[in-house]
């Protein structure tokens, strides 16, 4: 009889209740069911709409992911982006993260995550095993950033990479005129506790894109808190952060990366 009661619930909800330890004989069961039904009737994705993404890149990445895509997040943190991609885009996801506490958060959220150094992990992943590889604000912390970028394009069809722009005017100002290591909203660390070891500017990145013969599919920048399409030199001064969607040239045989 317990099952019958659970079967009346919308799909997924019965399982959710069970995972909370709720039984149909509990006194609160009816109230909970009504509450859940009311919440669900707001619309299929109404519940998640109320959570705005923490990072500006997240909503753009959502636009890139199609149902059934397999997404790899390099440095996935607490798995927030991946959870969004699962629920909103129907993606299959896999995260990589080095911090043990964040890994546990990912596991709790149900995001499959590998607790390992992402550069090491990238080296063992097979070619083209993912559709999209994402690296949000992580590039500048890597020991071998170019190897990671090339690895990304090897394991995934397209790569999404975002980084703070070291040529932003505020950086130039604090360093050029102030004479001190820049501390800005995109680079909030002091010189002694920063994880950033390989910072670059947008121009530096586009130079690499040309040198490595990488195709840029799309590119956005964050200018004074607003997202704009990247167009040329001016953004190198005005953009705080940048995000590029890149694709390796298919003619490049796998393994001939370096």
């Amino acid at each position: 009889m317990m099952d019958e009661d659970f079967n009346k619930l919308p799909s997924g909800l019965g399982e959710f209740f069970r995972s909370l330890g709720v039984r149909s004989i509990d006194s609160t069961f009816d109230q909970l069911r009504d509450l859940a039904n009311r919440q669900l009737s707001l619309g299929s994705s109404g519940h998640y709409e109320s959570h705005a993404p923490k990072r500006w890149e997240d909503s753009l990445i959502e636009g890139l992911v199609k149902t059934g895509d397999r997404v790899l997040d390099l440095g996935c943190g607490d798995g927030e982006l991946l959870v969004r991609l699962v629920y909103r885009c129907g993606a299959e996801v896999q995260g990589i993260e080095t911090n043990e506490d964040l890994v546990i958060r990912c596991i709790e959220r149900g995001v499959p995550v590998c607790h390992d150094d992402l550069e090491q992990m990238l080296s063992i992943l097979p070619d083209r095993s993912f559709d999209i590889a994402v690296m949000e604000n992580t590039l500048q912390t890597l020991v071998h950033p170019l190897d990671a970028l090339r690895g990304m394009l090897r394991v995934a069809r397209i790569g999404v990479v975002s980084f703070p722009n070291f040529a932003h005017w505020s950086v130039r100002l604090t360093f050029g005129l102030g004479g001190r290591m820049p501390v800005t909203s995109s680079l909030p660390y002091t010189w002694y506790d920063t994880p950033n070891i390989h910072l670059c500017s947008i121009n530096d990145f586009t130079d690499w894109v040309v040198a490595d013969d990488v195709e840029v599919l799309e590119s956005w920048v964050l200018v004074e808190g607003k997202v704009e399409k990247f167009n040329g030199d001016d953004h190198n001064k005005t953009a705080e952060q940048a995000m590029f969607v890149i694709k390796g040239k298919d003619s490049m045989p796998a393994g001939e990366d370096r």
Binding site: R70, E92, V93, Q94, E100, V103, C106, I107, P112, V113, C114, H115, D116, L125, P126, S129
Partner: peptide, 11 residues
């Protein structure tokens, strides 16, 4: 992973 099986790996 090569078989597209999501894995949680903890070291």
């Amino acid at each position: 992973l090569a078989n597209r099986i999501p894995v949680t790996y903890v070291k």
